[in-house]
Amino acid sequence: MSSMERVITTLSHKEPDRVPLFLFVTMHGAKELGISIEEYFSNADNVVEGQLRMQKKYNNDCIYAFFYAALEIEAFGGTVNFLEDGPPNAGLPFIRNFDEIPNLQPPKVKDSKPLHKVLTAIQKLKEYVKEEVPIIGVVMSPFSIPIMQLGFDKYYDLMFFHEDLFDRLMKVNEEFCVDWANAQLEAGATAICYYDPVSSPTIIPRNKYLSTGFKTAKRTIARIKGPTATHFASGNSLQIIDDVSQTGTAIVSASTFEDIVLIKKACRDKLTVLGNLNGIEMRRWTSEIANQNVRNLIMNAAPGGGFILSDNHGEIPFQVPEEVLLTISEAVHIHGRYPIEL
């Protein structure tokens, strides 16, 4: 099976030849090319080269067209701080005052240089991998990007006490998100990963989610012209699995703190589970531990299909050694063959 066939089979809740592996490696591409993270992300060709090399090296079942989350903030006119050893961070929130929200306009994808780098990378990657390997595009959900637009504390204030302004911000963000997701699909992305950590029950209670993030996701995902995966970036999802399945998404992430057996059971025939290796701990895993963790995860979550193995955050930390990633890949290829030996 090709990676694409493997993923499509598992998405239809059937068992493919083996468990698909989505190693969400981004910054490691800079290591591959021997350049800084800032230089790596400055040019689409670097990311194309990095992703292709890593896809081969780790036998990865996806190409991950994600640059960094703060890229969308650049599109809004905000700033980004590059680090030597970590993901670029959004600078200080560009919405300083709630009064600015009524006049905020969604950026146009076609006018944004940072976003164009990603679209160029996707187009070029598609020329290489064609329909063999799925290309995953990424958007920050309209409901979660305000953490970078406003700062977390101010966003809570807005969400809980300023309903009109919150609705206005969602409207702006939804327009941008749909436009951005569809541009990536048009460029050649196979699916869109909809990052929505704020909707996780780790961050807001379910009743608040139902009146906010859930409605936003339902409206937004309905307008995205391709399949989506909803990712809570390490946040829990079990409590809201049924709700998430009603947003029209196909895949849901699981936190490393959650029981993958319960998640799988809750998702049966409705959603494919993505997860849930601990990326932070991964940095110091020995080969033995990596192999054991992969094996346990496969035994608990892989039978019956509907499962893609990945980390639980959606981005492998820069500090995770190549050897660990190679061991994880090998372990998936050894233990992930269907039928799974329990």
Partner: peptide, 11 residues
């Protein structure tokens, strides 16, 4: 224990 959300802890 995953029974309440961060927003509730913060508030």
């Amino acid at each position: 224990e995953g029974k309440v959300a961060l927003s509730q802890v913060y508030m």
